[in-house]
Design a protein around this nucleic acid. Structure first.
Lengths: 156, 156
DNA sequence: AGGCAGATGATACCAGGTCTCATCTGCGAG
DNA sequence: CTCGCAGATGAGACCTGGTATCATCTGCCT
């Protein structure tokens, strides 16, 4: 089962209708290399001569976020983006600041650390978020941003 | 030297002029309990019958951010806020999701963890950000949001 | 095959932030 | 002490990302 199907399935399993727009969103999200914004998706939809309303894109992203199929990132440059990720376990993101590719990172030892910080300060911790930014192996190898151009759409 | 003076001093040391608006911003920021937004500051300025342009507020916050006197938070509810914090060492924030009060948390063991994650994934990590959200001791004690009302202005 | 809950696109709106520009002022040189 | 100008300001236009409203359309269950 490929990524697109998995996403469509996620919609179905959660009781949402399968519509052309949603299928398209699923394809576009599945075909993204790095992170993407709502506007990216809409542009790419338009490139395929498909018309999707802005609201629909946001609605789809909202649903996918709630289904934990994508997650919203707050980038260091104060903009936002979404990334496709693993819905099954709590994790964080390691994001390439050049090409946007992101890998999921298990919480691991962090949980313990977070716990300890909470205890030391008397806070009851509810959630935490760790975001890591750096240069991915491909970009490091490629030198001056060669991987950037390859960012949009294509097999993972 | 009180907090306000410290902030004014930060402006001076960085070679910026000391103007009434900046002094006012310094006071308002220093007098904030939890986190605050640009709009909060402007409102509080207006309450004192001082007129500051929106742009000026943002400009001041931008400077203070670059001087690391304040930091920008991305709250879980997708809004933003600024918090006063320690300019002298790399740290993270533990933020009360009820009253917004924030304590600085030293990086500590996290650095090691981050390093390891980078190494394991072949990324050269440039920056990381950890944000913790929970209920602070005061709010936990006060029960239903009593501390919330006390949030704006007053001695730390 | 029919009906309706749920989905859609257009469009208006909102918040947070940036840009521009004409005016004003802190402050260092003299 | 005062003068001039770099730097700061406020007003307001604008931009981006996101939400709300609403009339219309359509997937899907019966």
């Amino acid at each position: 089962m490929d990524q697109t199907t998995r996403i469509v399935r996620a919609f179905e399993d959660a009781g949402y209708q399968t519509t052309p727009s949603r299928r398209l969103m699923a394809e576009l999200v599945a075909g993204s290399r790095g992170h993407f914004s709502a506007a990216d998706l809409q542009d790419r939809a338009r490139q395929r001569r498909a018309k999707v309303g802005r609201a629909t894109v946001f609605r789809a992203l909202e649903l996918l976020t709630s289904l934990r199929v994508v997650e919203r990132l707050d980038l260091p440059n104060r903009s936002h983006a979404y990334v496709l990720c693993d819905p099954d376990e709590h994790h964080h993101h390691l994001v390439c600041s050049r090409c946007g590719r992101s890998v999921d990172v298990a919480d691991g030892e962090l949980a313990r650390l977070v716990d300890e910080i909470g205890r030391r300060n008397g806070y009851r911790i509810e959630t935490h978020r760790l975001e890591l930014f750096g240069i991915c192996p491909l970009c490091a190898g490629a030198g001056t941003g060669a991987a950037v151009a390859a960012d949009r759409e294509g097999p993972a």
